[in-house]
């Protein structure tokens, strides 16, 4: 069948691009699967090995991602907290690919995705099979207790869909990730992604159109669609931050801690932008 051939082709593409330690990388991807090839959250290794091929290609040949400081990510449970930008959530996919391709030992990571996602046909299935899940606190808690690496974007769509003039300015952070970190005693690794802002500069957000289609936003970019341009990505991983305190503290107390994380990401962003010579190279 055509689909099987396509799946096989993608799969061998994936393994050819993974470079050294292919088996280890595949082992890092695999989770506890049942006789039907899925883990309880719906992740499927077979599906993922085919599905990640385009992502690895984008990582290596399109966005030509450079990673810095990935060795700082501790083993066991960890929250990766990143800035979010670029209209399409490519930044999440690229952070995931860097954890798989550059971390030693390779690691699979789950991103907490928007509640909008399960309402989208095909996207919802794709996300579940590659191990991405809806960002409810219960899901996050369960996975951290399983010693998994979780990526969160505390800006949410506020960051993803912001307009060009606001590039590399962190938007308001949600507090939920901090409550979870305190509750589950999880270290936080601040992550700065540079290059995603320029992949699809948004001039305006056509709000009535977004409302009509049920999208979080409807960006108008120079190319018309939010199609990502081949900007070079640079991903910076910061030193892990450990917080102590009560998870059910007042918002004001949590905001102080969240500010520390936000400042760490902003300073990595500023330093990264100063260091880069060109958006595309």
């Amino acid at each position: 069948m055509l689909i099987d051939t396509l799946k096989k082709g993608l799969r061998s593409w994936t393994t050819s691009m993974m470079g050294e330690q292919v088996d280890e990388k595949i082992a890092a991807l695999s989770r506890s699967e049942n006789e039907y090839g899925v883990d309880p959250f719906g992740f499927s290794l077979d599906y993922s090995l085919s599905a990640v091929a385009p992502i690895i290609w984008l990582y290596k040949h399109y966005h030509r991602v450079e990673t810095f400081g990935i060795e700082k990510v501790p083993r066991g449970r960890v929250l990766l907290v990143s800035n979010h930008s670029g209209q399409l959530p490519m930044d999440g996919a690229m952070i995931g690919a860097s954890m798989l391709l550059k971390a030693d030992p390779p690691r699979s990571m789950r991103a907490m995705v928007e509640k909008w996602m399960p309402t989208l046909p095909w996207v919802s299935t794709f996300m579940a099979r590659v191990g991405q899940i809806v960002g409810t606190p219960e899901n996050c808690r369960r996975l951290l207790e399983n010693e998994e690496a979780i990526l969160v974007f505390p800006e949410g769509t506020r960051g993803l869909n912001k307009l060009w003039p606001k590039r590399y300015q962190l938007q308001e952070f949600g507090l939920g990730f901090m409550r979870l970190a305190l509750e589950t005693n999880t270290p936080i690794v601040p992550v700065a992604v540079i290059g995603a802002e320029e992949q699809a500069p948004s001039m305006m957000n056509l709000k009535p159109m977004a409302k009509l289609l049920g999208f979080p936003s409807f960006p108008i970019t120079p190319t018309g669609l939010p199609f990502p341009l081949p900007t070079r990505y640079r991903i910076y991983f910061g030193d892990p931050l450990f917080f102590t305190g009560r998870a059910d503290d007042e918002d004001a107390e949590l905001e102080k801690k969240v500010k520390v994380v936000r400042a760490a990401i902003q300073s990595m962003l500023d330093a990264g932008i100063r260091a880069r010579k060109h958006v595309f190279w």
Binding site: P40, F41, K115, W116, P118, I133, V134, T136, E138, R142
Partner: peptide
């Protein structure tokens, strides 16, 4: 519901 956690207690 699309808002559900994967495993409801």
């Amino acid at each position: 519901s699309p808002d559900n956690s994967n495993f409801l207690t």
